[in-house]
Nucleic acid binder design. Structure first.
Length: 576
RNA sequence: CGGAGUGUAGCGCAGGGGUAGCGCACUUGCUUUGGGAGCAAGGGGUCGUUGGUUCAAAUCCAAUCACUCCGACCA
């Protein structure tokens, strides 16, 4: 590609709308344009990256025996009504009507559509297992789209669905796709971790589910990680042990103390001069399950945070929110002085596992400006309670065995695989005949990769102050080639090598623009191709040397013209 | 949806009742070629939209829309 003919424009200034590196750099490097909030146009150079990512995913999927198809972007409403998700998906699903008032949606995901295709074709266990996948546009009307391609509303996803007669078959395919995902992200040169995840409302409780997280500081997910124990889990799911826990075991009477206007754990503990871990934090939640509301009191150590995902899973609630202030008041409780004693009857009480039944704590007295000291759960609490793991893991925690420290890293979720069980086949009355001629609901797995999000994640992980540093497998071109100087001889020889490299199979971006060298260098570094080759009047005419610049290391290597092709070959092959 | 903020040229911004501005980008010419060049000449705007106040509104007021950021969602 000759740059003088390319549809490409870079920007010197940072766009005001972009906050994180990938978004900024993709806009500055002329890869994408915003069309509306969370909706982007992919410009030619940006689309090349997307296509490369797609191609790697396609190749690895094909290797597993999965078969590619393409489902319509629009899914008829009746399929969603059949599975029961027309309502469940809520505002996230873009719904509309056609001219005959039929309900339609722009697919946020395709379980319903693929089950419908499946059931029209497959009738026998002999056809199973089978895995179908597509690479297609999805639309999710996110509550808050942000960070460019990182959380767009419209995005490209690879979504795969597998069908099985039994769990061993599902496990086998699941593990195969797990490995295929690892292969994809390795080929793309991404540092990632596969973590145990929360299934959300996708699968049943015993289903396996893993997320593939690209490690990056701007990631929105937290990963709890311990290499030595093979622990890697999304913080939503992770169970870890507290380090340095020193419960207050000296026997004490349960006494009321005045704590005028001291409401937070911070305020109370410093007022009473105690450690925060010797106080109890009491939080009220409203949990909705089967359309019935239940009020739940959660008791945590003072310096712990609640993990709402764990709470929601434990309660099996469909909606979970912190109880609104006016509702707390209507229960006769006082925010800031809530405690486990003297609660209204219909409140369910959950106590975090790390709270010791032998220890004495400070907690709210359910009385204005008053706390209790010397509170012991076994002795002083009248209500029944359940002990549950509900805390958010913290940096400095220990692994579940207690033998090693964990670290918390931030990640960008680029892939997620689930075992769905028979949730959708059952809901949509889809059966196949097994060996005994009996109709059974096939089990399903589903497997997503965020294609366009990967482009952003790769930049988050690989960039510097000058621009993008593409991993070579997904760079829009392999080589950037240009010349510096006015002499026509120098541009002619550069152009000759442009053809020569192209003939050898490289994708070459030839910068033949009539602009100064600084301009070319800045643009090339912003775009971030792995290698830059420069024919400079100075070096080439005086010493017959050509410069090769390695974007990732910043290294400049000078070679004789005769060695150029070999050197580029070896540098390119060894590049990440 | 709650909270905060921004809308003026393609991009980044200034201006603040009376003539629409700057830098970058763009066009033309000449010069320039190893780190986003110089000179000269140009093109480009319903100042987000609608309504109000006023002799006069980009500017004041109101409504509305869009976008960005912080919280519940997810590839």
């Amino acid at each position: 590609m000759k740059l003088s003919k390319a549809f490409w424009q870079t920007y010197k200034e940072n766009p005001a709308e972009a906050e994180i590196p990938s978004h900024r750099l993709m806009l500055r490097a002329g890869l994408i344009h915003k069309s509306a909030a969370g909706i982007y146009n992919y410009l030619p150079f940006g689309y090349r990256v997307v296509r490369k990512i797609e191609q790697i995913v396609r190749e690895e999927m094909d290797k597993t025996g999965a078969q590619e198809l393409l489902m319509s972007v629009i899914t008829p409403g009746e399929l969603w009504q059949e599975s029961g998700r027309w309502e469940v998906m809520g505002d996230e699903m873009l719904k509309f009507k056609d001219k005959s008032k039929r309900d339609l949606s722009i697919s946020p995901t395709n379980e319903e559509a693929v089950v419908d295709i499946f059931r029209k074709t497959i009738k026998s266990y002999k056809s199973l297992p089978i895995t179908l996948y597509q690479i297609n546009t999805k639309f999710r009307d996110e509550i808050r789209p942000r960070f460019g391609l990182m959380r767009g509303r419209e995005f490209t996803m690879k979504d795969a669905y597998s069908f099985h007669v039994d769990k061993p078959s599902l496990d086998l395919v699941y593990d195969g796709l797990f490995k295929a995902y690892e292969a994809c992200f390795n080929r793309m040169g991404l540092e990632f971790i596969a973590v145990e995840a929360d299934a959300g409302n996708m699968g049943s409780k015993d289903s396996k589910t893993h997320e593939f997280q690209v490690i990056a500081d701007t990631g929105e997910d937290k990963i709890v990680y311990s290499a030595s124990e093979g622990l890697a889990a999304n913080i939503e799911k992770a169970t870890t042990k507290r380090a340095n826990l020193k419960p207050q075991l000296t026997k004490a009477d349960c006494t009321e103390v005045a704590t005028p206007n001291k409401k937070s754990i911070d305020e109370v503990s410093s007022f009473l001069k105690i450690e925060q871990q010797h106080s109890l934090k009491c939080l009220l939640f409203s949990s909705v399950k089967n359309n019935e509301e239940e009020i739940v009191l959660v008791v945590l150590l003072g310096d712990d945070e609640i993990n709402e995902v764990k709470l929601k899973n434990y309660l099996g609630s469909s909606h979970l929110t912190m109880l609104a202030d006016n509702k707390i008041e209507s229960l006769g409780l006082l925010k800031g002085f809530i405690g486990p004693c003297g609660l209204p009857k219909n409140i369910k009480m959950l106590v975090e596992e790390h709270i010791s039944e032998d220890a004495y704590y400070v907690t709210g007295a359910n009385k204005l400006d008053t706390h209790l000291t010397g509170f012991n759960l076994k002795r002083d609490c009248q209500s029944a309670y359940e002990k549950v793991d509900l805390r958010m893991s913290q940096d400095g925690d220990l692994s579940p065995s207690g033998n090693s420290n964990i670290t918390i890293r931030k990640g960008i979720e680029v892939g997620h695989i689930f075992q769905l069980g028979d949730k959708y086949t059952k809901a949509m009355s889809t059966t196949v005949l097994d060996q005994n001629g009996k109709a059974v609901y096939p089990l399903m797995g589903c497997y997503g990769i965020g294609i366009t999000r990967i482009a952003a994640a790769a930049i988050e992980q690989h960039h510097d102050e000058n621009g993008i540093i593409w991993p070579k497998a997904i760079a829009p071109f392999h080589l950037y080639l240009t010349f510096v100087g006015k002499d026509p001889e120098i541009s002619t020889i550069a152009e000759k090598y442009y053809s020569e490299f192209a003939q050898k199979g490289y994708e070459v971006l030839f910068d033949d623009r009539n602009v100064g060298p600084g301009f070319k260098f800045k643009d090339s570094e912003l775009l971030g191709l792995p290698l830059r080759i420069v024919f400079g009047e100075r070096d080439f005419k005086e010493r017959g040397e050509v410069e090769i610049f390695v974007r990732r290391t910043g290294e400049k290597i000078f070679v004789k013209e005769s060695e150029l092709i070999e050197k580029v070959k070896s540098l390119y092959e060894s590049a990440l």
